[in-house]
């Protein structure tokens, strides 16, 4: 054992040395602040500070789970999260593959640059645009509906449409940005593999299936596993701006609830408790997903 360690030090000494400053960073700026997770079990009072605030056990968690709307907001969170996982997650992969199939370099670069634009607009601005298009009275779409004698639809305040709207705008906003990482991954695939396939007479679909997808498989697995870590974060900025009392039945989520009850009311302990709950769920999922990924040799640690 001692011998093995010595051996490892000789072989990987430089490696450990390279790792050290980064680890120190993580300890100081990430791990030390984690002490404050204790606030989840405290009646946190800013003036008394973390240590002096009284312990209250699971009370913050109980407040959250016993809330009248707990079922509704957890349900909405899970649903929106699931939709985003099913639709928003693969979207950039598909876009990257579509771009990859484009042979004209100029076209490819133009499309790439244009699709990445929405990432730079804040949700406040995007919502302003949505209102201009979809407002029930003056919105462009409803004015058209009106001209053709159709019934006006209040897209932004209809609880039946809000989830689809959230997911669609999310895909639209993030697809170009998300595709970048897959494009980088595609660039790493050895072109000689394609040449060999062509010689073998493999169709484009077969090339996609046997060369392209395996080539980016590990990145997909990595991003999927890491995505699971934030399964209960469904995009506060977006939902907060799109949420209103007419659609909240289907759109109020954990984060917006925490904002109202925890942050605005200054209940830091409660906000921390809900954050901890979300973290633990994410942690369990990541552990599980990593075990699964191991079967494909795609584990991330």
């Amino acid at each position: 054992m001692v011998h093995a360690t010595k051996n490892a030090m000789r072989r990987y000494g430089v490696m450990y040395a390279l790792l050290l400053p980064g680890l120190l960073y993580f300890v100081i700026f990430k791990y030390v602040p984690m002490v404050y997770i204790a606030a989840a079990f405290k009646d946190y009072n800013v003036l008394r500070g973390l240590w002096e605030s009284p312990w209250i056990g699971w009370q913050n968690f109980e407040t959250f789970f016993n809330g009248v709307y707990a079922g509704q907001i957890i349900g909405n969170t899970l649903l929106i999260s699931a939709y985003k996982l099913i639709f928003s997650f693969p979207a950039p992969i598909i876009l990257a593959l579509m771009l990859n199939a484009v042979t004209s370099n100029g076209f490819k670069r133009t499309i790439q640059t244009l699709t990445y634009l929405p990432h730079f607009l804040s949700w406040v601005v995007i919502y302003g645009l949505l209102v201009a298009f979809l407002a029930p009275g003056s919105g462009l779409v409803n004015q058209l509906f009106n001209t053709f004698g159709l019934e006006r639809i209040s897209f932004l305040t209809e609880s039946g449409m809000i989830r689809s709207l959230i997911v669609t705008t999310d895909i639209w906003q993030s697809v170009g940005w998300g595709a970048i990482i897959y494009l980088a991954s595609l660039a790493g695939i050895d072109p000689s593999l394609y040449e060999a396939a062509k010689v073998d007479g493999a169709s484009r679909w077969r090339q996609l299936w046997h060369i392209t997808l395996p080539g980016i498989r590990n990145v997909i697995i990595l991003l999927l596993v890491l995505r699971l870590s934030a399964i209960l974060d469904v995009g506060f900025d977006q939902i907060f701006i799109m949420l209103n009392p007419l659609n909240q039945e289907n759109a109020d989520v954990i984060e917006t609830w925490v904002y109202r009850v925890g942050m605005q009311e200054g209940r830091i302990g409660l906000a921390t408790a809900v954050g901890l709950f979300k973290s633990i769920i994410g942690f369990v999922l990541v552990l599980g997903a990593n075990k699964m990924a191991k079967k494909f040799d795609g584990q991330i640690w």
Partner: peptide, 20 residues
Amino acid sequence: DPMAQDRLKYVNEMMLKFVT
């Protein structure tokens, strides 16, 4: 009370449902 915000949400939602 921790329920205050939930109560407010219920009232606001119901009022809107009544008028619409």
